[in-house]
Amino acid sequence: MTEKSCTDLPKGTPALKADELEALKAQIDPAWQVDETVLTRRYETKNFAKALMLVNGVGYLAEAQGHHPDIKLGWGYAEVSFTTHSVGGLSENDFICAAKLDAMGLAG
């Protein structure tokens, strides 16, 4: 997944089905939680500054991939949630970004 890049998915492109979600989930860190429409991971950090640095790393990846998550930031944590609005659910783009974040080693 880390070798792939996000692609433009026009409105009307179908979201991933349950079996596709399971296959892609097996390729990312088990800390990622999947429901039908959102892929989320909560990162725990030692303080606010580390959480902010983590968010900056997420932002860098999001800009590079053209696929932007929702981010919650607080003291000692950052929560990252991906969804693909144009498909009304999850797409391979969400899992590509999750895998790339895993490879960046941002946790901590």
Rank of each mutant, 00 (worst) to 15 (best):
M1Q: 09
M1S: 14
E3L: 11
K4N: 12
D8I: 13
D8C: 09
K11E: 14
K11N: 07
T13W: 04
T13I: 00
A15T: 09
A15R: 15
L16I: 07
L16Y: 07
L16A: 09
A18E: 14
D19R: 10
L21E: 08
E22T: 14
E22D: 13
E22Q: 15
L24Q: 09
K25W: 04
Q27H: 04
I28C: 03
I28S: 02
D29C: 05
P30R: 07
A31W: 00
W32I: 01
W32H: 02
W32P: 03
Q33G: 05
V34T: 15
V34I: 13
D35N: 15
E36M: 05
E36N: 14
V38L: 10
T40N: 08
T40M: 04
R41G: 03
R41F: 00
R42D: 05
Y43R: 02
Y43P: 01
Y43H: 06
E44V: 10
E44D: 14
K46D: 15
N47M: 06
F48D: 01
A49F: 10
K50N: 11
A51C: 09
A51N: 06
L52V: 06
M53E: 14
M53F: 12
M53H: 09
L54T: 00
L54C: 09
V55D: 05
V55M: 13
G57R: 08
V58G: 01
G59N: 08
Y60D: 10
Y60W: 05
L61Q: 13
A62M: 11
A62T: 11
E63C: 05
E63V: 12
E63S: 12
G66W: 04
H67I: 11
H68D: 06
H68R: 06
H68F: 12
H68C: 12
P69V: 07
D70W: 13
D70S: 13
I71Q: 04
I71F: 08
K72S: 13
L73E: 03
G74Q: 05
G74H: 02
W75S: 09
G76L: 00
Y77V: 00
Y77S: 07
Y77C: 02
S81T: 15
S81K: 13
F82P: 02
T83Q: 09
T83Y: 05
T84C: 05
S86Q: 10
V87I: 15
V87W: 03
G88M: 10
G88L: 10
G88A: 11
G88T: 08
L90P: 08
L90W: 04
L90K: 11
L90T: 09
E92P: 13
E92I: 07
N93W: 07
D94C: 08
A98P: 03
A99I: 09
A99W: 06
K100L: 03
K100W: 02
K100F: 01
L101R: 05
L101M: 12
L101T: 03
L101Q: 08
D102L: 00
A103Q: 10
L106A: 03
A107S: 13
G108D: 12
G108Q: 13
